[in-house]
């Protein structure tokens, strides 16, 4: 039962998610201030909202973590009175699902920067999918829509992908990730080598 989520996995994921939900809550006003101009500069920092998923997955490395983290972060933001209300959860679900699909495509065994960036893009696509219904983005002028999509995906790659990756890399140095990751075949190998 290596891949089933234990209570430890869930609690650690939710803690990470809640830390992010506090950041998300603070991110809202910042995002809104940048957004007043309507030129989608705000979209460059949109990627922050996908970050819980990639960070939690890179730390715990189990199936289902990305989706759970993103949902929990959305739920947290909702409970702290986030300005978008119940909308948050629907977005959170699709963003987390986007990340989850990418990690699943690599069978949850690839933790490289490249995959993390892909997950960011998938989360971005997830959010754009809802935006098509909720914000009518297909009705924007074509250049403006293109700008929105490009800005959001670039932001997603930079924040959700690159930033999350290096954040977790820095965390690895503290040794804390060893507590929560499932044992890998390398760990068994190390034990056997030691026994010899």
């Amino acid at each position: 039962m290596k891949n089933k989520l234990t209570l430890t996995d869930i609690l650690v994921t939710i803690i990470i998610a809640l830390i992010f939900s506090v950041i998300y809550k603070l991110w809202g006003p910042l995002y809104s201030t940048v957004a007043v101009f309507g030129l989608h500069i705000d979209q460059l920092i949109y990627g922050m909202w996908f970050m819980a998923a990639t960070v939690a997955f890179l730390i715990i490395r189990k199936p289902g973590i990305a989706l759970l983290a993103e949902l929990a972060a959305a739920q947290g933001e909702f409970m702290f009175g986030g300005q978008w209300g119940v909308t948050l959860l629907v977005y959170g679900f699709f963003q987390g699902l986007g990340c989850e699909i990418i990690f699943a495509l690599f069978r949850y065994k690839n933790y490289r920067l490249f995959v993390t960036c892909l997950a960011g893009i998938a989360a971005g696509i997830g959010s754009l999918f809802i935006d098509a219904f909720y914000s009518y983005i297909p009705d924007l002028a074509l250049w403006n829509l293109t700008l929105l999509i490009v800005a959001r995906l670039v932001g997603a790659i930079l924040i959700t992908g690159v930033f999350a990756y290096y954040l977790v890399e820095a965390l690895e140095k503290t040794g804390v990730t060893k507590l929560v990751r499932p044992v890998s075949s390398q760990d068994y190998q190390a034990l056997e080598d030691e026994a010899k």
């Binding site: 209570l7 430890t8 609690l11 650690v12 990470i16 965390l171 503290t174 990730t177 507590l179 929560v180």
Partner: peptide, 26 residues
């Protein structure tokens, strides 16, 4: 700031989770 805070809370979460598992919250 971020690294120590995150690391500490993951450690704390881990300890609490072990205690919760012992009390069959799982």
């Amino acid at each position: 700031y971020v690294i120590p805070l995150l690391a500490q809370s993951i450690r704390r979460a881990h300890r609490i989770a072990v205690a919760m598992e012992a009390k069959k919250f799982s």
